[in-house]
Structure formats: C-alpha cells, structure tokens
Design a protein around this nucleic acid. Structure first.
Lengths: 198, 198
DNA sequence: TGTAACACTTTACAGTGTTAAATATTCTAC
DNA sequence: GTAGAATATTTAACACTGTAAAGTGTTACA
C-alpha cells in the first residue's frame, strides 16, 4: 500500500521543485523577476497550485532564507569536528561564507534582503542571536578571549558584521567579475580581526 | 515676464514633492509599498503625470540613491575643513554615516538595495571607486599610512565594507529599537580599525 | 479672439499575488 | 466494474502594479 507514500514523495519533490525554480529564475534574471506565474510555468502547473505548498510568495523566500542559514550552520558543525584551533575555525568558516555568497548568490540575496529579494520574516536573525553560547563561532571567540558572556556576544556581533557586511557590500556594489579579486582582501580583514582578538 | 520662471519653480517643487512622497511612504510602510499610484494620490495628480518628471519608477529611486551619496559627500567635505587629523576625520565620518543610516533609513535602504528597495542603476558605486585619490577618506587613509596607491585603495575598500557593511547588517537584521545599543559597538570597531592602520 | 503650446487626465494593456468556485482525477468500497 | 468519496488541479476573477497612447482641458501669445 505504498500509494500514500508515493504521493508524499511526489509532494515533497514538487515542493523542492518550486524552491529550485524560484532560485533558478532569480539566478538567471533577478529576484524582482520571480513571480508565482513564472514558477508555475516552469513546473508545468497552474499558479494556484503553489498555494498548496506555500501559504504565499513570502513563505517561499522564507524557506530559502532559513535553508540558507541552515546550510551554513551545517558547514560550521563540520568544521568544528575538523579543526581544534578556534582561530583556524573562524578563518575557515569565513572562507566558506565567502564561497557560499559567491556560488549561491541568489540564496545569499534572500538571506539578507538585498537586490530585489524581499522577505518580511526576519525571525531567523533573532534565532541566530538567541542561543548565542552554543553557537560555534561564539564558542570560538570565547575560547580565544575568555571574557564575560556579554563581552563575547559583543565580539560575536562584530564578527557577524565584519564577515556578512563585507559580503553584502561586495555583492551589492561590485560587478560580478570583480568579486574574485576581492576575496584576498576579505580574508585578510578576517585574519586581522582574528589576530586582534588575542 | 516671470511666467516661465514661475512654471520652472513649480516644476522643481513638484519634482521634489514626488521624491519626498516616495520617501515618506517608504518610511511609514516600506519600499515594497511605494507605488506610482500612491505617490500620485498624495501629490494629488494622476499617475501618468509622474512620467513628466521621471522616466520610470526606477529613476525615482536612482535619484534618491544619488542624492543620498551626494549628501554624505557634502558632510564629508564639511568635516575636512573642520578636522586636520585624518584619524579624527575618519571616526567623525563614521559617526555621520551611522546617524544618516539611522535617521534616514529609507534613503539608506535605497542606497544599498536592501529591504525591498530595488534600484537597478548601480553606477554610483563605480563613481565612488573611480576617482579614488580625490576621495577625502582615501586621502585620510593615505595620510595615516602612506603606501602605494593600490595598497591605499585596498584599505579604502576595507573601510567601506567595515562601515557600510556594519550598518547594512544592523539595519537588515536588527529590530529598530535595538539599534541605538549597537552604535558604541560600531564606533569601537571603527576606532580599532583606525588604530590598526598606524 | 484664434491658435499653438502646454498641462493634465482618461483609458487601456499586460503583468502581479491571491482567492473561490468549478472541474478533473484518483482511490476505495460495494 | 462501477458509485461515491477524497484528492488533485484548473478556470475565472479581483484588486493591485508600472506604463503608454490618446484625449481633454487650460494657458499664453499673435
């Protein structure tokens, strides 16, 4: 009686297709060009079908945003098992952030509401700052410079602004072909920051 | 025969009203809520009238963006006459950037394409990096740490990413009432950056 | 006072997100 | 194998959006 299971699988697949299609259109055109009808066209369904899978257009972006942060978190967890040195962990993570932003720019745009990507739901940011002392970056910072929790959280925010801010500005203001040249400058800034901690 | 002059004046006024109204709506609602028809409603004209003043909606945003950068440039020029110390110039300018972003958030959103503000024209960024060695911040950086033009330009880019990046991230990810608490962290980051130069 | 220039509006088109109602398809029980 | 229920999917519609063409007033000058 695998019928309901098959249906379940197909639903999951279609849901994934919707997300993928949205990203594809955003990548090839822009987030401004992403519309319910265009996605429906590509997946060969009528527009209202999408509302069986997402409450509204915003929820589609919200999912992509959350998935983006989750993906980075996963990478971070992997790094944690690979490197013991907190300094190494931080610079390696910065490297991954850079690559992520360059390779999956359309996801990054949604994650930070830039360049036409506009998603109201911002609770993922709060989540990121909520359980701070379990965040691998927070832990690394605390390890390098043991201080009060508040002081570490402050440093954590500086880190956050330095890395993501650098990427945001670069993606928004610089032409795509210019970006590879900026990576060394980014990494140097990160290393200087890490060095300045101890 | 001040007729044509009077007309000229009224045109200029109406143009300014359009820009102001767009900003007002963005401030009270969001940039996503700014529409030609809403602006037309407020200034009490029919929608097509706006096209006598701006080629399209994008040009309205483009103007606001350029005006924003111009305003900051003006402030920077003022600072240049006030302070001799390049370190002081940089930190004071950072302070002004912060205030600008907090007080005129809707302009800042257009300047960097965040939170629903979506303006295709990005040549203002290129302009900012084009005539680098006449930029007061570039000059200040060169004064603090005299190096090759390329090295200074690199530092200039780091400065740009640090200050604007910090602001972008803060505005996008933090709730408005939280922002004042972040100013000291911002300024501390800036001061550390400046200190690290020499 | 007629005419040319200008200011402005009406109407229309193609596109948007989204909803309710109608239809088609699939599965289950007899 | 077919009737009926459950599910899947579409059609049609509404209220928006930016924008262009055509039409209508209003003003200024000969």
């Amino acid at each position: 009686m695998g019928i309901v299971e098959r249906r379940e699988r197909m639903k999951k697949q279609l849901r994934a297709d919707i997300l993928k299609t949205a990203r594809d259109i955003a990548r090839e055109e822009s987030w401004a060009a992403v519309s319910i009808r265009k996605i429906a066209d590509v997946i060969e369904y009528s527009p209202p079908m999408l509302y069986e899978y997402f409450d509204n257009k915003d929820k589609i972006l919200e999912t992509i945003r959350n998935d983006g942060f989750a993906a980075l978190h996963e990478e971070l967890q992997k790094l944690k098992t690979l490197y013991r040195s907190p300094e190494k962990l931080l610079t390696e993570f910065a490297q991954i952030q850079w690559r992520f932003a360059i390779e999956q720019t359309e996801v990054f745009q949604v994650m930070f509401n830039i360049d036409g990507a506009n998603c109201l739901s911002k609770q993922v940011y709060q989540a990121e700052f909520a359980k701070l002392n379990t965040h691998p970056v927070w832990e690394a910072l605390a390890q390098i410079r043991p201080r009060s929790a508040d002081a570490v959280s402050k440093t954590f925010y500086e880190w956050w602004c330095l890395t993501y801010g650098f990427l945001l500005i670069s993606i928004v203001t610089q032409p795509r072909p210019q970006l590879p040249n900026l990576e060394p400058i980014f990494m140097e800034s990160v290393r200087r920051f890490v060095r300045g901690l101890s």
